[in-house]
Structure formats: C-alpha cells, structure tokens
C-alpha cells in the first residue's frame, strides 16, 4: 500500500510541509529541513514537541507520555508531533518548548 501524502501547516507562521501517513509529523519536518515545531526526544516522552491539531483533520497517534498529554488534553487534539501520523491535511498550533522549564538561573538567551 502506498502511503498517502498530506500537507501539515503550522498556525501563525508561513511554514507548511508534506508528511505521509506512515511517517510522524516531526520526522517529516526534520527530514525536509523545515522548522516550526521544537524537537526534543522524538520518542513521545519529553513533551517539547507538543502541538494541538486545529479543526477537524483526522490523524492517529502512537503511545505518548501521559504526563505530557493528559486525557483531557488529548480530547482537545493535543498530542506530541513525534507520535502524530496524519490521515488528512492538518493545521497545527505549536504549544511546545515555551511551556517547558529551563535550568534554574539559566535562560536560553543567556546560554
């Protein structure tokens, strides 16, 4: 079976890229050299690539850390891009890194 290809658009940016149904969205973005979603562990664990699917685009997800994606969040279309597989064109709102903590006494600008 040939995997279908879909367009992934990042809200509040001009960024859009193609992702096939058998590939996770984060990997598709990275392999095309595109940006927009922060990249962390790529294993569904750290929550850095948290996104919200906006609208009614269909998708499926792999197993993700429940700590990073509680059930209520998941019902609202929140998921981790590294475990997100499109089944339609998707619009994503990036929630990721700026919700994360940094080392105390350090910030990314200073680092």
């Amino acid at each position: 079976m040939v995997a279908e290809k879909f367009t992934i658009a990042i809200e509040d940016s001009d960024e859009a890229f193609t992702c096939s149904s058998d590939r996770n969205v984060l990997k598709a973005m990275e392999q095309l050299g595109r940006k927009g979603i922060p990249v962390g562990c790529r294993g569904g664990g750290c929550g850095v690539c948290r996104v919200q699917v906006v609208g009614d685009g269909r998708y499926r997800t792999g197993k993700m850390s429940r700590e990073q994606v509680p059930v209520d969040d998941e019902r609202q279309g929140i998921c981790l891009a590294c475990k997100l597989f499109p089944e339609a064109d998707l619009r994503l709102k990036v929630l990721g890194r700026w919700q994360k903590h940094f080392i105390t006494g350090m910030n990314p600008e200073a680092a």
Partner: peptide, 25 residues
Amino acid sequence: TAEELGRAIFYHDRRLNENFLTVVT
C-alpha cells in the same frame, strides 16, 4: 563559572543547546 557553562557541558560547541536545558523525562 556560569559564563563558561556552555564549554563545561559541550566543550566543542561551547554553547548550551535548548535540549540540554529542557528535554527531560
């Protein structure tokens, strides 16, 4: 010292990356 933290962690890059600062489980 704090201003040399980048070199302390990654001696060649000499700068911290965001992943070192934020990616944990």
